[in-house]
Amino acid sequence: MIRLQDVTKRYPGGQEALHGVSLEVNKGEFVLLLGHSGAGKSTLLKLMAAIERPTSGAVWVSGQNLGGLRPAAIPYLRRNFGLVFQDHKLLLDRSVRENVALPLRITGFDGADIARRVRAALDRVGLRDKENAHPVELSGGEQQRVCIARAIVHRPAIVLADEPTANLDDAYAREIVALFQALHQVGVTLVVSTHAPQVFESVRPRQVVLSKGSLAA
């Protein structure tokens, strides 16, 4: 489903985030990206979501070489993903409900469908009672769960999550892991970066370790 072939990513300024990475993620697979800060986990996820372009090598998603995609096709590709960002990227002037509804509005769902799906997504992350709150009124953990609700509300085929449990206490972290497990069980492909693999032990995901921009042996 996702394939990286000898991918190197060098940022302007010369910093090399990834070097010669080749990786294959199969459909329905749950992959955990492990590594210290700066190992290249976030860059790898950004390459998969076509947020970054590789300096060399190729990234394939669902049979499409992202390097050959027209810029106009990239938004449609991204709609296949549910993205969980480390810094949440919530809109502070919008309510929780409006934040979660954003992917559905972008995709053109009608109002009733949006309301139903947003309620369902908020139920899954346990924030139904906060739907009218604004992000600034929420704790870091709650903001992370809103971000996860936004990532799954349109039922994507692939979820790419960057440190999704970083801001959560142990109990909420395990709830999120349980949610990911549930998604995995219905066939969603998950690639999750974390520096706390013990939280995911119950899921027994495939573990990929990155070290200084390369895959560890």
Partner: peptide, 13 residues
């Protein structure tokens, strides 16, 4: 910020 987030999650121009 809103535009950047929207583009990240699939909004067309």
């Amino acid at each position: 910020e809103e535009i950047e987030v929207s583009k990240l999650i699939g909004a067309t121009n």
